[in-house]
Write a protein that binds this DNA or RNA. Sequence first.
DNA 1: AGAAAGCCTCGGCCGC
DNA 2: TGCGGCCGAGGCTTTC
Length: 264
Amino acid sequence: MPRVPEILEVESYRRLCDQVVGARITRGFADAYLGKKLASPATWARAVKGLIVTGTARRGKLLLLETDGPTLGIRFGMTGVLLLDTEAGIEGLFYGPHTFREEWVRGGLEFADGRRLLVHDPRRLARVEIEPDLDELGPDALTITRRQFDVALAVERGEGPAIKARLLDQSRIAGVGNLLADEALFRAGVDPHTPLARLDDARRTALYRALRSTTRTLAQRGGSHLGDHMAARLRGGVCPRDGESMAIATIGGRTTYWCPRHQH
DNA sequence: AGAAAGCCTCGGCCGC
DNA sequence: TGCGGCCGAGGCTTTC
């Protein structure tokens, strides 16, 4: 089963990074893909050398390393894993078989004490950033309040987009990935196509509670891929709640599974 | 062989 | 008709 770094996984990478708070960076490296958001890949090496890590943070799926200089950001794409030396941030968080290949290490940081923080990413969609712009991201999905949730679901005009598309919009709520979105909608009994304007207060409440329960339970279970509806996430899948055949469509650019019987 | 759970860009469409 | 913003589609990339 492929496992992708959604917000819960990135939060565990953040905790892993707590171990390097206080350490001095002696060297940084990033290949052309990992450094794609920078002026050049060499920018990373120049910018990080000599910095002391002073803290860790996270906004949605963006991991932040605070330093005595610029804040460093790491995004993990679909297959990125953070390793401290050889210890994975999440045990076995790999795409496909649990393998490690040296050539999939796209970059990282080396510390004065010899430890190394490595970005392992087969599919090359992970990125590093320097002083990432947090204004582009909405409130964090793990701590969002009901009030903030209502703001995030506000409609500018017309019926608004499908609820699922809005949940995935990182500028509205930071950190809801495809799996979390489908799981929360499944738990709340809401059809992912529902236009925002047609979500009454009761359904917003149900969805907010479902988002909270989803992040909490899946964190306890150990990952974003351990949701109740995951078993139904395949061709011919059946709703684990009532046995109905799951519907499949692309919504908000992502493959969406839902149960037409209890999600409406 | 086709589909993939993140993110980015582009183009079309809508409303002012 | 013009413009800007919004939204969905498609691309990136490699893997199994």
